[in-house]
Design a protein around this nucleic acid. Structure first.
Length: 231
DNA sequence: TTTTGATCATCC
DNA sequence: GGATGATCAAAA
C-alpha cells in the first residue's frame, strides 16, 4: 500500500477494506503512535485514515486525492452511526468573498465529491478500539446543492456588507460560520461596517450535523431527525 | 503564518 | 443533550 488509488472505484474499495478495523490496528500497521486521547491530537484520526488510504500527502492545498478530485472526510459517529460533530469545510475567505458565487466557491470545490468515512467516536471507548465504519462516496443532490448554495450566498452577503462581527453560528441551514483559529486572539482582515477593512477573528465554514446526518441516513438507513424510540 | 486535520469546553 | 464559540497539533 504505497501508491495513491488510481480511480474512485479503487479508492472506495480500499475504504471498504478498512471498515470494521479498529484504529489501533491501522496505526500499528502504519507504525503510527496512538495518542492517549484526542484532546491534544484533534486531527489524528483524519490523518491516520489519509495514510491508510494512501492519500498523496497531508496538509496540502486542494483535494486529498487530486487525481480523482475527491475530498476525504472522517466523521465521528455515535453507536447508532449518527454524526457527533459538525464538519469543517473550509476557511471563509472574509477579505475576498465579494463576487465569489457558489459555483466557484471553495466550499463547493470541497464538497463536490466527498468520501465520508465514519469512525466510532464514543469518548468512553479507548481510541485504539474505535472502529472504522462503512464509507460513502457522495456528491450533493440537487436539493442539497441548492441549500448549500443559498447558505453560501446569504453568509457571504453578510460578510460583504460588513456584518462579520455580528455573524453567529445560528445563521445558515446546512452551512454555518464559526471561529477557525489557533485561539480567540487570532486576527485577519474583513470588510467593516464603514467599508474600511477591520481586523477580526478568522472564521471557517462548517457543515451542520443535521445535514451530514441526513446524508448518511439516506444511504445507510440511520435514524433520521426526530426519530422515535424503537418499538 | 497559513492550511490541513478536526474535537474540546462551555453555555443554553 | 446539543449547539456555539474556542482551541490543539503537524506540516509547509
Amino acid at each position: 500500500m504505497e501508491r495513491a488509488p488510481a480511480s474512485e472505484a479503487e479508492l472506495f474499495a480500499r475504504a471498504r477494506a478498512l471498515a470494521g478495523h479498529p484504529l489501533g490496528a491501522l496505526a500499528a500497521r502504519l507504525e503510527v503512535p496512538v495518542p492517549p486521547d484526542l484532546s491534544r491530537a484533534k486531527g489524528w484520526v483524519g490523518q491516520l485514515l489519509e495514510r491508510a488510504l494512501d492519500a498523496p500527502g497531508t496538509s496540502r492545498a486542494g483535494p486529498d486525492f487530486p487525481e480523482l478530485g475527491v475530498e476525504l472526510k472522517t466523521l465521528p459517529v455515535d453507536a447508532a452511526g449518527a454524526p457527533r460533530e459538525s464538519t469543517f469545510v473550509c476557511t471563509l475567505p472574509l477579505a475576498r468573498s465579494g463576487g465569489l458565487p457558489w459555483p466557484r466557491s471553495p466550499a463547493r470545490a470541497k464538497l463536490s465529491r466527498v468520501l465520508w468515512l465514519p469512525v466510532e467516536a464514543d469518548p468512553v471507548r479507548p481510541l485504539a478500539d474505535r472502529r472504522v465504519g462503512h464509507p460513502l462516496l457522495w456528491s450533493p443532490s440537487p436539493a442539497e446543492e441548492a441549500t448549500l448554495a443559498a447558505d453560501w450566498d446569504a453568509l457571504v452577503e453578510l460578510v460583504e456588507a460588513g456584518f462579520v462581527e455580528s455573524l453567529t453560528a445560528h445563521r445558515g441551514r446546512a452551512l454555518q460560520v464559526r471561529p477557525k483559529a489557533a485561539d480567540a486572539r487570532a486576527r485577519t482582515w474583513a470588510p467593516g461596517a464603514t467599508g474600511d477593512p477591520v481586523r477580526t477573528l478568522p472564521r471557517g465554514l462548517y457543515l451542520r450535523r443535521d445535514f451530514t446526518r441526513a446524508v448518511l441516513a439516506r444511504h445507510f438507513r440511520l435514524p433520521g431527525p426526530r426519530a422515535g424510540r424503537s418499538a
